[in-house]
């Protein structure tokens, strides 16, 4: 398992990186390398040029701007667990992070890399949906913001055009009336989930749900929201009957494909179980 030979450049600005990528024709960006390097070693990918984003200043750092938390694309998975601003304003990421891979991988892997790759079994991309995040993308026409709902398009396909860079993630800050929960079912801790989900909702003082976003991963070609469930929960207070009712909506909402790991019926079953647990968790204030 040796990668094919490639050239390497470390750019300091988005423009330089973009230009280097465009010029090479057959290039890949590299952030943490935790998905890319194994793919190179297995020769599943063999670009001529690697453009290292590590030195691009705009991609580093976590800052709060009003109600928006801006998380630089190069923020490591491990920082989701240690960064106070994330714990305070985007707690769903902190809750999901321990489930992403293992410490060694979390020390290198980046949020931008994970969301750019958009593996359908990954935790963070789904949390972008649940948190209603926006993706800051640098391309030929400069920088634009794409909402998560429009970002995930198909298997490993996102709103990123070839050569575009995911610069940062903008996450609306949670307030006192927000509740959130994350959970996943894996055979072993650190594995990609058989089924996973995160939710974040705004609750009335009396415990009724004003609105809620629920995103599943490992159930489809992209992370997906279960919109009929979200709609059925709006305006309601969580109780056993409501949970059972919305669990019943899962089958119509999700359509997992048959694969070598799990039959679709089992994935649906696990999704119902998980939904029940998450709703139970947020039935009282977080």
């Amino acid at each position: 398992m040796k990668a094919r030979a490639f050239s390497y450049v470390r750019s300091e600005t988005l423009a330089d990186a973009y230009a280097a990528f465009a010029q090479a024709g057959d290039a890949s960006y590299i952030s943490g390398g935790q998905s890319l390097v194994p793919a190179l070693a297995l020769r599943l990918q063999a670009p001529e040029l690697l453009v290292d984003l590590g030195a691009v200043a705009e991609m580093h750092g976590v800052t709060l701007d009003g109600d928006m938390l801006r998380i630089g694309g190069l923020t490591r998975h491990a920082q989701m667990l240690t960064e106070p601003l994330i714990a305070r304003h985007a707690p769903l990421l902190a809750q999901a992070a321990p489930h992403v891979a293992h410490p060694a991988i979390r020390n290198r892997g980046t949020l931008g890399g994970s969301v750019a790759l958009a593996d359908p079994a990954s935790e963070f991309p789904a949390m972008m949906l649940a948190m209603d995040a926006r993706m800051e993308i640098f391309g030929a026409a400069g920088t634009r913001l794409v909402p998560a709902d429009a970002y995930f398009q198909d298997l490993y396909q996102t709103a990123l055009e070839p050569g575009e860079i995911l610069v940062a993630l903008h996450v609306p800050s949670v307030g006192p009336r927000h509740r959130w929960a994350f959970d996943e079912l894996t055979r072993r801790r650190g594995d990609y989930a058989m089924v996973g989900a995160g939710l974040q909702g705004l609750f009335e003082e009396d415990g009724r749900i004003e609105h809620i976003r629920i995103a599943f991963f490992s159930v489809a070609a992209t992370p997906v929201r279960v919109k009929s469930v979200e709609a059925a929960l709006a305006g309601r207070k969580i109780d056993a009957a409501l949970i059972a009712h919305v669990q019943g909506l899962i089958d119509a909402e999700l359509d997992p494909a048959e694969d070598e790991h799990l039959p679709p019926a089992m994935r649906l079953h696990l999704a119902r179980v998980l939904l029940g647990r998450l709703l139970q968790t947020v039935s009282s204030p977080t």
Partner: peptide
């Protein structure tokens, strides 16, 4: 080297 051998194996 192993890498060269892998290149040639392709």
């Amino acid at each position: 080297t192993r890498a060269l051998a892998e290149d040639a194996a392709e």
